[in-house]
Design a protein around this nucleic acid. Structure first.
Lengths: 294, 294
DNA sequence: AACAATTACGGAATCCGTAAAAATT
DNA sequence: AATTTTTACGGATTCCGTAATTGTT
């Protein structure tokens, strides 16, 4: 059985060209690499190198071996990652989302639904949804569409997330019972950075708007308190907000048609038994409207 | 880096159920397996087993790991095989064929074309043509059709192999200048066993024929000498036959339309530079007709 | 009593770094 | 002189089988 460490050395040698450079990059000594490559040849029973007196290069077989070794090492890494992720998944329910709303909402809801399970949350790029699921990096990802790419993956519709703005009482717009994107033209908004797909929606719909992105949620809260910039809320974030401090702002729904994102729970079919009960609970408690108080 | 030996133990454990049975089948001691599985868990950092006092079973993570380990081990085996085969291919030109004629013909021709290269020959099943090429088990395979399955593989037409029979002078058919399959009805033929696709052709076309298959070519020659059974020849085998001893038989062509097989040289495009010159030489010297003497 | 898993122990094989040698640029 | 590969040596680690221990069927 071939030792993968030796394949690693082979691949490194292909990259660095000399045994000494290989050794240096792998943080071992040259003699170690010399021995390793000889052992590899011995084990395979074929020559991989052309040896001149102080020069050693890959022969054709060696080049092929290096190329295939790279693939094999990648497969090994994938194996390890999958097993480790799966193992962790037994302890935690890792939850991701292409938008933050449902994740925050679940965080708020979890006392009611979690049975001594710990949740981990993270924003996921849409292009990583499938791979994060099949590599067991996440057990559940909130997506803005059904995922049909893969037989092992299924989605369950949960509800929609609708956009609203919170507007300072000093801003004339705060007197409206609802506003359109057009009404918001030219305003400057305070926005948290990781809002996923919402970013394109607000950017594309509100003419000449300026967005002051802030990475940290707490800092944003502070800025919100000490400024009059309008901020965004949704039916999902509204429910979890502290209602005592409304920061002198009034919540105004957006009335345009494209003010919402559909939210699906997407997961591996093999995880259905653990995920579906959770999703049903979420769907049951889904906040339908801004005015609805819990 | 995970030790593949430990994965082998894991896979074996999944199959045999207990550590002791695993140890027995792997020809090592139980303590070794105990230690191995503990080490594997330690390295991965996740639990793979449910341990009761004298009972140990795979948990869900362990089941997944065993399944994926099996795949990884297969990948390792494929790697090793490919490298070893490729290495040998540098020393030899391994040639196979779905029919034996072209191989035997090449054997005869090789003094003219081989530049100090050694040839190895073997009959290949049609379903193994592609895999034997991409695993570098053969560098060239004579096939009865163009292979278009794979981008890395191409075929070159060489000529056709045409069937004839050699018939004892005591047999009335030997006076014919040509015969049809129908004429051969009910005859018993001496046939070498490994004739690939020809087997179906003669079986399906000659009514009520009996075929005495013989594994060994030399034994067949002897039987031919001491019997009067008709035998098969083709334009390819005819050229290499010893013309001095015709065994009291006359060569009679078969006149039916389906008395031939097209012959292609099929090889990896990456091997084109070594294989194509050989194929051109073969095509140039292809025996067109039975009557043509070299 | 038979079987399964684990722990303890000790010898053997392997591994790996240091040092030195041999040869080239 | 600096670089590169290879060989030689020796200590340290790891590996693995034997034997003993614990507990179950």
């Amino acid at each position: 059985m071939t030792d993968l460490e030796l394949l690693k050395e082979l691949v490194a040698f292909e990259q660095y060209g000399t045994l000494s450079a290989t050794a240096e990059h792998l943080m071992i000594t040259q003699p170690s690499v010399t021995r390793g490559m000889k052992k590899l040849e011995q084990e395979l029973g074929v020559a991989l190198f052309n040896r001149e007196v102080n020069r050693i290069t890959l022969n054709e077989t060696g080049k092929l071996a290096a190329k295939k070794a790279k693939e094999l090492l990648q497969a090994e890494q994938d194996f390890t990652e999958a097993v480790i992720n799966f193992g962790h998944m037994q302890e935690y329910i890792n939850v991701g989302g292409v938008i933050p709303g449902p994740i925050l909402y679940l965080e708020n809801l979890k006392d009611k639904v979690s049975q001594s399970l710990t949740f981990n949350h993270q924003l996921v790029k849409p292009e990583n949804v499938v791979s994060d699921l099949i590599n067991y990096k996440e057990r559940l990802i909130f997506t803005d569409q059904e995922i049909l790419d893969n037989d092992e993956i299924e989605s369950m519709f949960l509800g929609v997330e609708k956009l609203a703005v919170k507007i300072s009482e000093f801003n004339p717009l705060s007197t409206h019972t609802s506003v359109s994107y057009k009404d918001l033209e030219g305003q400057s908004f305070l926005v948290v950075n990781d809002i996923g797909s919402w970013k394109e929606i607000i950017r594309d719909n509100i003419p000449n708007a300026k967005f002051l992105f802030q990475e940290d949620l707490n800092s944003l809260d502070e800025l919100t308190q000490y400024s009059n910039f309008p901020v965004f809320r949704t039916n999902l974030t509204q429910v979890i907000e502290n209602h005592n401090e409304d920061n002198g702002r009034k919540l105004v729904p957006i009335k345009d048609n494209n003010n919402y994102i559909e939210v699906y729970g997407t997961y591996l079919t093999s995880q259905r038994s653990t995920v579906q009960p959770l999703l049903k609970e979420i769907a049951k408690n889904w906040p339908q409207d801004y005015n609805e108080k819990k």
